[in-house]
């Protein structure tokens, strides 16, 4: 996994709450068997005026001029500023894949849906929870100042605004460790193979029915 330690980038504001994963990447694009290539279809139904299909050349499609990412000032954004309950709905990891493929590295919101939040960390994407008041303030500052950039320091768990204001955020120590070091967490878990085997052996004794093979009978 790609490591994440520090990032500085332009902030793009998505001013709506309960953005669900169907909105982030609609289902017709989930038919891909790859992890990449979802960027052009990020927020597809909002971003384009026509109905998206998996086989299209998106550069030829009519853009919705009102959609924030279609405004030149936000086009190269790598930090997404969002509202409450971002990423709710389906467990599709295609949602963080699409955000990542577009070029986002950080998402800031007052709250995230659990599965989406977890999926971000598996893909080198950092979701940051800041309180509602701070998020409101950032929305106002982003609207006011074109090219508004923030700096994120994951080791220090801090967000720094252009005026030098600092906001600290919480992050789970294990997730931070994996992200900062770009660790493959399967590899980390397999270091505990002996613990898994001894758990299985004990469980096989106490609840053998859990180990009865399901077979083609």
């Amino acid at each position: 996994m790609r490591a994440f330690s520090h990032h500085k980038g332009v902030v793009a504001p998505m001013d709506r709450s309960n953005v669900d994963t169907d909105l982030i990447i609609p289902k017709q694009f989930l038919k891909s068997i790859k992890r990449t290539g979802f960027g052009p279809n990020l927020f597809d139904a909002l971003r384009y005026l026509d109905e998206g299909r998996p086989d299209q050349d998106c550069s030829q499609r009519p853009l919705n001029p009102d959609f924030f990412l279609n405004q030149p000032r936000y086009r190269d954004a790598s930090v997404l500023l969002a509202r409450r309950n971002f990423g709710c709905g389906s467990s599709r990891e295609h949602a963080p894949w699409a955000l990542d493929d577009y070029g986002f590295r950080v998402i800031i919101a007052p709250s995230f849906a659990d599965i989406f939040y977890n999926n971000c960390f598996k893909n080198g994407l950092l979701p940051i929870v800041l309180d509602e008041e701070t998020v409101d303030k950032l929305f106002a500052e982003v609207a006011e100042q074109e090219g508004y950039q923030i700096e994120v320091d994951l080791p220090a768990q801090e967000v720094v605004t252009p005026s030098g204001e600092r906001f600290s955020f919480e992050v789970d120590p294990f997730r931070k460790h994996c992200l900062v070091n770009g660790l493959d967490d399967i590899g980390v878990t397999l270091e505990d193979s002996d613990a898994i085997k001894s758990y299985e052996a004990a469980r096989r004794q106490s609840a053998p029915w859990l180990f009865d093979a399901i077979t083609h009978s």
Partner: peptide, 17 residues
């Protein structure tokens, strides 16, 4: 529910973090 990275994690380790 889990994401695809965790599907791979469960296949490989029979566990989740």
């Amino acid at each position: 529910g889990i994401g695809t990275s965790e599907v791979e994690h469960v296949l490989a380790t029979q566990c989740l973090v």
